[in-house]
């Protein structure tokens, strides 16, 4: 009756709310944890210590090189047609403006196609993207590539509508990518409200002038660590079921949702199994990735370091899409493996989280999934996830202890059963 015992302990028993309370203590103590920052270093030391105190095995730090970019003072002031302070968040890896800022007329576009059509008007201007929100995967390309596309046509800066379906004048940050053959221009996100207002002004033929100031700095790559802990398998200790979340976050809010929740339910999975006195046949390995936000940097180096033992990896699991009300798992793997996962998900009927969806790879596990290792990620109610994503609003206040209990139960039942079954999942 192991699945029921896990659910009872996580949801109703002594471990109730534990992942929430651990996460609250962590984020209130450390705060946000940007790649390369002192805060992230402190967070890793903190986790190294508490995982040992929790009695987990083989607690270790695996060094990796990560980007180090720091936000400086930043502001955007509309000067024409009226004075208005524009809320901005500079994007990761953006260059700074000169100290006096960049003052220029604004060109508003709604798509890259429109920008290319108006390329001759863009020279010397600040390009404002007011692209509609379709979905995250589709729309995030404006944040990733907005500066490059604007730089190609001679713009002096880009301001990008935040990637969200809902806003209370809240800018959302994120990483962006320059291209080596394109002039680098400062780039930041603005709120949906300001993007729409400038689009309305522009459509009326109103001339808009903005002064943008950004004090960002990029430093050489620095050393960080993936944090690892295990429950060593009883029968096939060399074989691994990997559960994970990422420890780094953005430098705004607390990173409680992205991805504190995912990291802490992954820790909770090992704690619950240990508390129940269980030891699965194969090793259950917790990995808390570093530097996911700049593009899965810690995970890529982990893959390079460990891919020689890929035949021992049973499944890679990552929770990085919130820890709200769970609905089940997303899974990538063979039809035979999917059939087995479908059976395992039935163990979660008591908490109504039995669904199995497609596309189980996340940023940090995708390297393994591309090589044919089964991959799973938590699927939960993300209807509000992107409201808070990469904003000052990503705090403990958006987390719910009872929902985290349920997520921990899903994560633990699935990872334990896969780790304890006689056979590995078919590739």
């Amino acid at each position: 009756n192991i699945a029921k015992a896990i659910i009872n302990l996580a949801v109703y028993g002594n471990a109730q709310n534990r992942s929430y309370e651990r996460l609250a203590r962590f984020v209130d103590t450390v705060g946000p944890r940007l790649s390369g920052s002192k805060n992230l270093e402190m967070a890793i030391k903190y986790m190294f210590s508490v995982l040992q105190e929790d009695g987990l095995e083989n607690v270790q730090l695996e060094p990796v090189k990560v980007p180090h970019w720091e936000r400086g003072e930043e502001s955007a002031m509309m000067l024409a047609p009226r004075n208005h302070s524009i809320a901005i968040l500079g994007l990761g890896s953006s260059i700074a403006t000169p100290p006096e800022g960049i003052t220029a007329e604004v060109l508003v576009v709604t798509s890259f196609d429109e920008l290319h059509k108006k390329a001759q008007d863009a020279k010397g201007k600040i390009v404002v993207y007011n692209q509609p929100f379709v979905n995250y995967e589709e729309t995030v390309k404006y944040r990733l590539q907005g500066a490059v596309e604007a730089g190609k046509v001679g713009a002096v800066a880009s301001l990008i509508r935040s990637i969200t379906s809902f806003s209370i004048n809240s800018p959302h940050t994120g990483w962006q990518q320059y291209q080596s053959n394109v002039p680098k221009i400062p780039t930041a996100c603005i709120s949906v409200e300001d993007a729409e207002m400038m689009a309305r002004m522009s459509s009326r033929g109103t001339r808009i002038v903005v002064t943008l100031k950004m004090g960002a700095r990029t430093y050489p790559d620095t050393v960080s660590f993936n944090t690892v802990a295990e429950i060593v398998g009883s029968k096939y200790p060399e074989q691994v079921v990997l559960v994970s979340g990422h420890l780094d976050s953005w430098d705004v809010g607390q990173g409680a949702m992205d991805d504190g929740g995912g990291a802490f339910i992954s820790w909770e999975a090992l704690s619950l199994i240990k508390d129940l006195g269980l030891r699965p046949k194969r090793t259950l390995r917790l990995v808390l990735w570093t530097a996911e936000e700049p593009g899965g940097v810690g995970a890529e180096q982990y893959y390079q370091l460990h891919k020689g033992k890929i035949s021992n990896f049973d499944i890679v699991m990552e929770s990085d899409s919130g820890t709200f009300m769970p609905m089940g798992l997303a899974f990538t793997g063979s039809d035979k493996a999917r059939a087995i996962l479908t059976e395992i998900m039935q163990l979660l009927q008591p908490i109504n989280a039995t669904n199995l969806y497609e596309n189980g790879g996340e940023t940090d596990t995708v390297y393994w999934v591309r090589d044919g290792i089964p991959g799973a990620s938590l699927r939960d109610d993300i209807s509000k996830y992107f409201w808070f994503h990469h904003t000052q609003g990503d705090t403990m206040t958006v987390q719910d202890p009872s929902q985290m209990n349920l997520c921990a139960a899903v994560w633990t039942v699935v990872s334990y059963v896969i780790a304890d079954m006689e056979e590995m999942l078919p590739r």
């Binding site: 009756n1 192991i2 699945a3 029921k4 035979k336 059939a339 087995i340 059976e343 395992i344 039935q346 163990l347 039942v413 059963v417 304890d420 079954m421 006689e422 056979e423």
Partner: peptide
């Protein structure tokens, strides 16, 4: 009559289902 590959898989899968049911 020897089991076909599909029969073998079905047989193995039934065993796996029983194994998983043992956790419930």
């Amino acid at each position: 009559k020897p089991l076909s590959q599909d029969d073998c898989y079905q047989h193995a899968f039934e065993e796996i289902k029983r194994e998983i049911a043992g956790y419930s």
